[in-house]
Design a protein around this nucleic acid. Structure first.
Lengths: 189, 189
DNA sequence: TCCATTTGCCTAAACGCTTTAGGCAAATGC
DNA sequence: GCATTTGCCTAAAGCGTTTAGGCAAATGGA
């Protein structure tokens, strides 16, 4: 019998694609085995277990997102950078809903530390360099931006803004405008 | 043999408590049966299936949340109302993480329409009555508030703001201050 | 109070996903 | 060309979901 050529790498990539097609929580070891036309047990030479699979997909998604963010931020500053970073998250979620869900997966501290999470925080701070904020306000602003980006994208993905006027794109644009205005005019404590 | 006295109502309440203890996605029909010291199959006279159970817990959480919000908003306006509504979400999530996760559960359109979702949107609009926004800006602001509340609470629940200064409460307060300032000074298109 | 009906929980059983253990055959490397 | 390693297999156990069919407890009308 011919070997299927499984590797952890290939399995994780296929798992990420499967997540985009059927949803992150429908990604199972058996579903993945089916894709490779292989018995479920065979995957356990390449993956510790089903949690391991999910963790690896999450790490992949976080890396991809961070890579996109880094590319988008290159050469941009101020509102331009703010918009670019925000759109990276929104566009990634639209293109890869399963991977985006994976990026939200609760990682164990070990994996979290090794993840691209730090790069994300770092890039949000880089955007804020274009505004006149000093600590601790900069941290508050980092958290605000994280909340808005993640919150908006989640709600939009959940269908919260469909079927009602004005359309989501318009709200997104106006919200980014308003965040820019807020950051330029951050109220004193 | 003595009957356990199961009803859909009791099962859903117990399911909600179980969610708070072990996490929403650990709520299974078998786990619930175990709590009542009853065979799993017995629950199927009261619940259509496992999806039905989750949907009912979600609807319960949405109702509870809407009830709390309505109570908190009574007699308040402006920033006072904004803060009260925001704290309802944050406090509920802290007290009932499993239920809060349930409230984020993707409902089928049928259930969504019958849910307290409409009350939530209505109350956010009520808060905005204290600010000088007209359509479509009011809708944009509704979406912004929804995103910040949901986004912040999710990230906080996921542990995003622990283990780093300044503490989360301070960021929360300053973010609400900044949102209030933003709404009072909403930039024109 | 007695009996018929309804209701509630049971047993049995099928199916799917997860995971471990142990085996054989293909690939690799000396 | 042979020994070793590696990759995928079969087998089997455990657990969650779900349906079908059955018996006993509760209910309520005569």
């Amino acid at each position: 019998m011919v070997r299927a050529g499984l590797t952890t790498e290939r399995l994780v990539r296929a798992g990420a694609e499967l997540a985009d097609e059927v949803g992150f929580d429908q990604v199972t070891v058996s579903a993945l085995a089916r894709q490779f036309d292989v018995k479920t047990a065979s995957l356990y030479s390449h993956l510790k277990n089903s949690q391991d699979l999910r963790t690896r997909i999450a790490l992949l998604a976080l890396e991809e997102l961070a890579d996109r963010a880094a590319a988008a931020l290159a050469g941009r500053a101020g509102k331009d950078a703010l918009t670019a970073l925000a759109n990276v998250y929104r566009d990634y979620a639209a293109e890869h809903p399963g991977r985006y869900a994976a990026a939200q997966f609760r990682l164990d501290p070990e994996s979290a530390a090794a993840s691209a999470g730090g790069r994300h925080a770092h890039m949000t701070r880089a955007v804020l360099r274009g505004y006149d904020l000093t600590e601790p306000d900069q941290t508050h602003a980092v958290r605000l931006l994280g909340s808005v980006f993640h919150g908006y994208v989640s709600l939009e993905l959940a269908g919260g803004f469909s079927h009602s006027a004005p359309d989501s794109q318009e709200s997104w644009t106006r919200i980014l405008d308003s965040l820019d205005a807020l950051l330029r005019n951050w109220p004193a404590a």
